[in-house]
Amino acid sequence: MLFLKLARKKLLEALKEFPEYSFYTPKKEGERVLLKETSPDGLPEDLRFERSTASAKELLFPQAETMFYFLRYKPSQKPVLDEGKRLILGLRPCDAHGIQALEANFLKVEPIDPYFKRRRENTLLVTVACLEFEDNCFCDSLGSGPDRLNGADAIIYDLNDAVGVLSNNEIISQRLKDYAFQIQEVRGEDEVEKGSLPQRTVEPLPILSPEEYLSLILEEKLWDKISSTCLGCASCTYLCPTCYCFDIQDINYGPAGKRIRTYDSCMFNLYTLEASGHNPRPTLKERWRQRFLHKFSYIPYLHGILGCTGCGRCIEVCPAGIDMREVIKDVAKFPR
């Protein structure tokens, strides 16, 4: 890992050294902040971006994608891979944690997902450390922000008169080197200068171990209470940077067709519905339990990282006003 210090202007110049990449940054459009393609010439001087409505998941694991095309009697199963090279700039450290969770699922266990793999290889994810907390975020309780590198390729710190870039990526290190006035070999965030970080005044949330969470799996009353006013829509899971469940459909055009995959959601009726008509998760109680335990017990148990980034998107979007922070507290309070 390399820590590079650059004058602000120099970093803006250096970012022009990535001609083969299309740039994506958060951009406000009406009510929403979207990840939009932009030119490296038009970047804001202070390199501060609003928090995007959707996370980096949108670009690395889109809501709908074609997996392959087929002809009747002649199935060609060559995956359709996205070869676009993208540099995503201006997302938050929590979003990079989200990517890490997706990597754990798609790349760390067999079968490796070729679609995600190619996109990840072709993406440079450069986050910006947060100067303040947003109304709904709680990354500090989960250890995923606001200054962590997580799954990003580089993170930018605001050092007032200069910027610090912690790079975990060969391409970025190489292309920024000549613009830096100070370069240092480091092992991680804890060894670098990070400027001023946001201060938290509220108490951190109680996070239990994967085993402790798992021990609550049969507590019907708990899951009943949590899910009692959930609508079973997918607003939360679609926007969540770590939710990766998908569904597969074939679309036929006469003798030809394509196989597509689209987001699924554990909050839907159809989720885990078996062909026999039996569903092991028949009501919202079981579905909410799946959503919570997947994030706080199964992913941490399997991959050693939390499956929630603390971004607060689900809190903002939930039409039933369900607040993940309250759920975390309710679960921790429940007698074990």
Binding site: L231, G232, C233, A234, S235, Y238, Q249, I251, I260, T262, S265, F268, N269, L270, P319
Partner: peptide
């Protein structure tokens, strides 16, 4: 995301046409 359907008291069908695969009305 079907939040509209879920938020609507009149959308109470246990199985909505969007989820039907035979026939499939839409992808």
């Amino acid at each position: 995301c079907y939040a509209c359907r879920q938020a609507c008291p009149m959308c109470y069908c246990e199985s909505c046409f969007v989820e039907s695969s035979e026939p499939r009305w839409l992808t």
